[in-house]
Design a protein around this nucleic acid. Structure first.
Length: 210
DNA sequence: GACCAGGCACATC
DNA sequence: GATGTGCATGGT
């Protein structure tokens, strides 16, 4: 495997094709999905999002005054439903308190000021914040997740440090700040991870090794 | 039935 | 500052 990130990207794109991320109908749905998918299979998240949709609740207005218990009940399939209901509410409260419930207003901020602002929301960590920024806001920020670290570590690439910021810096100092590129790259890494680089069994026949 | 999934906050040392 | 633990469903 070549060390140049753009060559790895090209290989993945050739192998898998475009992934069309994020799988959502709206930026708001991306935000909700980003929280719901924390340490959870996407398949389960889809069920929870469907529940919210079917009840007409998948909007800042729809979730504004919902009791947290009712929200928890609706997102049961996504797992950790009590925790995630609180996290969703924290994000909704934040959205209304700071941006009048408008993602458009929120995303009018600069990346440099919005990212730390998002990180103050309880339940939004680095990966969730960056997923929201990239896939809902369209900012050029590279998302680091468990697959990314696992894939690159197994190929003896990436920083020695396991810190989020170090990994993000590794990618962002080697790639031009291109939203479309960052979007597709991370999606491809998740695809690769799911199919060839799960925890167990160890990856075999990885497209990057051929 | 064990193991895992597109993390995060909090406790404890 | 590093490491450990709780959170929970559904697929393999």
């Amino acid at each position: 495997m070549e060390g140049h990130l753009i060559e790895i990207y090209q290989r993945l794109l050739d192998h898998f094709g475009p992934q069309h991320w994020w799988p959502a109908e709206s930026p708001f749905e991306v935000c909700i999905g980003a929280i719901l998918t924390q340490n959870t299979a996407w398949q389960n998240v889809e069920k929870a999002i469907k529940n919210l949709k079917n009840n007409g609740l998948l909007s800042p207005q729809g979730l504004k005054d919902i009791p947290v218990e009712e929200l928890a009940r609706l997102i049961i399939p996504a797992g950790y439903f009590n925790v995630k209901a609180r996290r969703l509410m924290a994000f909704i409260d934040f959205l209304w308190a700071e941006f009048q419930g408008s993602l458009e207003i929120m995303f009018s901020l600069d990346l440099a000021s919005l990212r730390p602002d998002l990180l103050t929301v309880s339940g939004i960590g680095h990966e969730t914040a960056d997923s929201i920024l990239l896939y809902a806001g369209g900012y050029p920020i590279f998302v680091i997740d468990a697959y990314t670290k696992r894939i690159f570590s197994r190929h003896h690439l990436g920083p020695e440090d396991t810190g989020y910021h170090e990994w993000q810096h590794y990618f962002m100092e080697r790639l031009s700040p291109d939203t479309k590129l960052f979007n597709e790259y991370h999606a491809l890494l998740v695809r690769l991870g799911k199919e060839y680089c799960r925890k167990e069994p160890r990856c075999s026949d990885c497209p990057l090794s051929r």
